[in-house]
Amino acid sequence: MAQDSDIFLDIIRCMIEKKQYKEACQYATLLNMQEKFSIEDFLLPLVLQDKLFGVDEFLKVSPRHQTELVTYLDAVLGKSSIRDTIMDYVSVHGIPEVKFDKMHPKPWKKLIVRLVKMFKLPPDLTPNLNKRRNEGSVELPVAQKVYRK
């Protein structure tokens, strides 16, 4: 089936249109069709829905998508508001069942760190994560001094 996977392309695209992201991702992974899709097709919607199992499986064999997804997530981390940025994306693409409780810096950073570690990606892909980590380490002693007074 994997050799003739192109015959399934329209079916998977139809699933994406019907917002069946998990199923589309699973079929694309099963048929080794990663290169036929972008991160916007179903990876980002699944991240926003906090359905990461399918995303991890898809990414395991696609270094290009690993880099693109982590770069995108890091770019969103650099915005003034993750939630506002994601709200714009969600409304434009009509993504259902978004887990807005994950649209804050701490869970967003944890996701990026997890993906970077899992796929052994270089730290230069995540300048905004690096900046936030450095800011956090600098701010911690200041906060501790305030509490000691």
Rank of each mutant, 00 (worst) to 15 (best):
P123I: 11
L48D: 02
E97K: 09
P45N: 08
V76R: 02
L125F: 01
E68H: 07
I95V: 08
K99W: 01
P96Q: 04
K110T: 09
T67S: 07
Q49F: 00
T85R: 10
Q20D: 15
P63S: 06
L59N: 13
L140W: 00
V138K: 10
D41N: 15
K51T: 08
M118E: 15
F42W: 03
C25A: 09
P127R: 10
R132A: 11
V138Y: 12
I16D: 13
V61P: 15
G94I: 07
L44K: 06
I39C: 04
V138S: 09
L30G: 11
Y21S: 03
E40F: 07
V138F: 09
E97A: 10
M103C: 06
L125D: 02
G54W: 04
D50R: 06
F8K: 15
K120Y: 12
N130R: 12
Q49Y: 02
D124T: 11
Y21P: 03
S5G: 14
Y27H: 09
L9V: 13
K19M: 02
E68Y: 01
D74N: 05
G136R: 02
R114F: 05
K36S: 14
Y27F: 14
Q66M: 10
G78W: 00
Q49N: 02
G94K: 15
D50L: 01
I11P: 07
D74C: 00
S38P: 08
S62N: 13
F53M: 14
H93S: 05
L30P: 03
G54T: 11
C25Q: 03
Q26V: 09
L44W: 04
R132C: 06
L48T: 00
M33G: 04
L59P: 08
V47T: 06
L44N: 04
L43A: 04
Q49E: 04
F119K: 13
E35L: 10
H65T: 06
I11G: 05
E97M: 10
L52N: 05
N128A: 03
P122V: 01
R114H: 10
L125Q: 08
K99I: 02
I7K: 15
L9W: 06
H93L: 07
S81N: 11
S81C: 06
K102N: 03
D101G: 08
A143P: 12
M103E: 07
S62Q: 10
M15P: 04
P63C: 09
V70P: 01
K131M: 11
I16A: 08
L129S: 04
E17M: 07
Q66P: 05
A75H: 13
K19L: 05
I95P: 01
Q26R: 10
V113S: 08
D74H: 01
M15I: 09
F8R: 15
G78A: 01
S91I: 08
V47W: 01
D4W: 13
F119A: 10
N32I: 11
F37P: 09
R64V: 12
Y27S: 14
I16F: 12
Q66C: 10
D56A: 12
I12D: 07
L73S: 00
E23L: 11
Q26F: 05
D74Y: 00
H65G: 06
D41W: 08
N128F: 03
T71M: 02
Y21E: 03
L44A: 02
L115R: 01
I11F: 10
K51P: 06
T71L: 00
I11Q: 15
T85A: 04
A143C: 08
K131D: 10
E17R: 13
Q26C: 11
G78S: 07
Y89K: 13
Y21W: 02
H93D: 13
K79T: 14
